[in-house]
Amino acid sequence: MSKSLRVGAALLLAVLAIWTVQHAALHQPLQLGAKPSAAPMAASQVTVNGEAPAPLDTPYAMVKIPERLPDFTLANRDGKPTSISAWRGKSLILNFWATWCAPCRREIPILESLDVQWKPQNVAVIGIAVDRRDEVLAFAAALHITYPLLIGEQDALDAAAAVGVDSPMFPFTVFTDRRGEVVAVFVGELHRPQADLILSKVKDIDDDRIALPAARRAIAAGLDTLNAHAAG
């Protein structure tokens, strides 16, 4: 065998060996189970505009969070098509949820209390139900949801994609200021300390006490602190 053929054969074997090793490493899913548990609140994460991490670190669910809340229209409880712009001029808490989702259900009392507390301050809570209409209405009646609901299936998924969550996992909550700028998108179950933190900064923006980028930085830092506290 000539030298060239020997070198070629060696290269071929080397490539196959490398691929075999890496293929084996990729297909050891049982090792995932050996990983230490994540902290209870750690998977909940805020993503803010203009400070999106580099693509390799982009959370799975995130694509591109828009600067401003895009307009979308979904049916309300009465079946009437309702544009999100009907709440123009208010700061919004848009909670995307589904009836089959346990953390979504756990959030509802918090959202009710936020609605009561923040409504006088020009903040509206709106539930965006991504689910079958009949199931949502029965669920909302059983749980006495009083804040407005918009309901849809594919059109609600399109709305989720429009706010930057293209591969949905529920719940997630979008916070906007009164100008319609997206302040934060929070993926996962919202807890009261996190909601209070984000809304306090939304209020600061609305009252022109802080600029949007600074508010986002403060929210990100505050959530890190809360997560560390919960983990620690």
């Binding site: 080397a14 890496q22 050891q28 090792q31 990983k35 750690a42 982009t58 959370p59």
Partner: peptide
């Protein structure tokens, strides 16, 4: 040539970011 091929094979076979379950941080979804 061998070295570059090793590098290429490593890059091509490396797990894409969305498959790095075993090395993902606690904040990954």
């Amino acid at each position: 040539l061998c070295l570059s091929l090793f590098g290429f094979a490593g890059a091509a076979g490396a797990s894409p970011w969305w498959m790095r379950g075993s090395t993902s941080t606690e904040q990954d979804f």
